[in-house]
């Protein structure tokens, strides 16, 4: 079976007077339903790798395969369309739109995709929030929620269009241990219960220990024997 997400000799160099190498020659396969943690010291290029895998950034060398398709020839619109349908993002900071209600935030990706009628989309958003224990929070604004709740709203939003892959950048970096455990459990369950693929960049050893596989990144390179 094809890997859902694969990097092939992936490299990213920031151009400039002194070019900065963020990621170099990363090759890896991520299988469906896998829970992968990317670890490494600060500035090692792990977040850059995640952005490349998430089609947010364009590699300077190599390519990313998503669901059996080579994304290196995609134009900007096709990349955006692929992100909308196939990928969900959870960032360290929740990045919810402050002026929208929690429910409207979860509805955003569905409304953009327009694959579901508004009624069905609303039911789905409400159900997602309920599944994440936020069933009665839909009408609130993000600032009325705790950090852990907001991160769960961000997860609900990432799941809105039912993407096969969820990418998380330090999803617990800003949370207390209680909320971290909750988010970790949710991401873990996504892979077990729903067969989603979760790739998370983390500093959090407890978080990493829950993953199926840990990939160490040092200076933009895969470090097979890296230990935190």
């Amino acid at each position: 079976m094809n890997p859902i997400l694969a990097a092939e000799n992936l490299g990213r160099v920031l151009p400039g007077e002194v070019p900065v190498t963020l990621v170099q020659d990363v090759t890896l396969d991520i299988e469906r339903g896998e829970f992968v943690a990317i670890m490494g010291p600060s500035g090692s290029g792990k977040s850059s790798l995640l952005y490349l895998l998430g089609l947010l950034d364009t590699p300077t060398s190599g390519r990313v395969w998503l669901d059996g398709r080579d994304t290196s020839r995609f134009g900007e619109d096709e990349l955006a369309a692929t992100r909308l349908e196939k990928l969900g993002f959870v960032f360290q900071f929740h990045f919810l739109l402050a002026e929208f209600t929690v429910l409207d935030n979860v509805l955003l990706p569905m409304r953009r995709l327009s694959a579901r009628p508004e009624d069905e989309a609303r039911q789905r958003a409400a159900e997602l929030l309920r599944q994440l224990g936020l069933g009665d929070q839909g009408h609130k604004r993000p600032h009325q929620l705790s950090g852990g709740q907001r991160q769960r709203v961000a997860i609900a939003r990432a799941l809105a269009n039912d993407p096969p892959v969820v990418l998380a950048d330090e999803p617990t970096g800003n949370l207390d241990s209680h909320a971290s455990a909750n988010v970790r459990q949710i991401l873990h369950d996504l892979t077990r219960e729903l067969g989603k693929t979760v790739v998370a960049v983390t500093h959090d050893l407890t978080f990493a220990s829950a993953a199926d596989r840990r990939i160490g990144i040092v200076d933009g390179l895969i470090a097979p024997d890296w230990q935190a």
Partner: peptide
């Protein structure tokens, strides 16, 4: 805090995806 509520959600169903 509603963190406990979140843990209770434990995905016993996730019916929405099935």
């Amino acid at each position: 805090m509603d963190e406990a509520g979140g843990r209770c959600a434990r995905f016993e169903t996730w019916a929405i995806f099935r």
